[in-house]
């Protein structure tokens, strides 16, 4: 258990809802759910969720902290916004799902091998480096996420697509060498650092 997780468990005892309200992006909306289930039915990835959004909201209220935070479910969200559009209570469900995932990640109890989480990490590292996504490096990194031989296999599979992109000028082969950074990337780093500090302070995380 991470240090932060221990702190949070101690701080909120058995009131998981309060913990979510205080620490999760848009978490204060969770209490507004009326369990109609339209979000769960509207999600295009619905069948793959172990716990659909409305059930997660109920689990939050029921104090099922461990089950929720270690769940793979909210990592399934692809931000299609179907649920938000349809929710009769106007809950920002997409944001709450991401918020929960993010919180679990921060606490260090998110499922380690969850592909979305791993991709997100990869993406984040990629983008903050130069303030702009290096698509070639991101794809390669993605292919090789599960080891070298898997990477080669996936790379070959995607070769025709890559070549096509190259041909139409949608992929810069020199990206492999770096470059493509935006001007003042270091300023972006400073801004991100500051933002992180502010957020940590706001949410009371030990930084």
């Amino acid at each position: 258990m991470s240090e932060l997780n221990k702190v949070m468990v101690e701080k909120y005892r058995n009131d998981f809802l309060k913990e979510v309200e205080a620490n999760v992006e848009e978490g204060n909306w969770v209490k507004m759910c009326m369990q109609c289930g339209v979000c769960s039915g509207s999600c295009p990835f619905g069948p793959y969720w172990e716990h659909p959004p409305q059930e997660i909201f109920m689990m939050v209220r029921a104090g099922k902290r461990e089950e929720v935070l270690t769940s793979e479910s909210m990592w399934m969200c692809t931000s299609c916004y179907n649920c938000i559009v349809r929710c009769p209570r106007e809950l920002p469900i997409t944001h709450i799902m991401h918020g929960l995932a993010n919180y679990a990640h921060r606490l260090g109890i998110a499922p380690k091998m969850n592909p979305t989480r791993r991709f997100a990490k990869l993406f984040w590292q990629n983008i903050i480096k130069g303030g702009r996504v290096n698509e070639l490096k991101l794809s390669i990194g993605l292919y090789f996420m599960d080891g070298f031989s898997n990477g080669v296999k996936k790379g070959l599979e995607m070769l025709p697509v890559g070549l096509g992109l190259l041909k139409t000028g949608r992929l810069n082969p020199f990206g492999l060498l770096g470059g493509g950074k935006c001007k003042g990337a270091s300023d972006i780093h400073k801004m991100l650092k500051k933002a992180q500090e502010i957020e940590n302070r706001r949410k009371g995380f030990a930084s």
Binding site: L17, K31, M32, M34, Q35, M58, R61, A62, R89
Partner: peptide
């Protein structure tokens, strides 16, 4: 009224 109670933090459990 129901929504207001939820906003105030009343928990509703079916």
């Amino acid at each position: 009224f129901y929504r207001s109670a939820q906003r105030k933090g009343v928990i509703f459990t079916k």
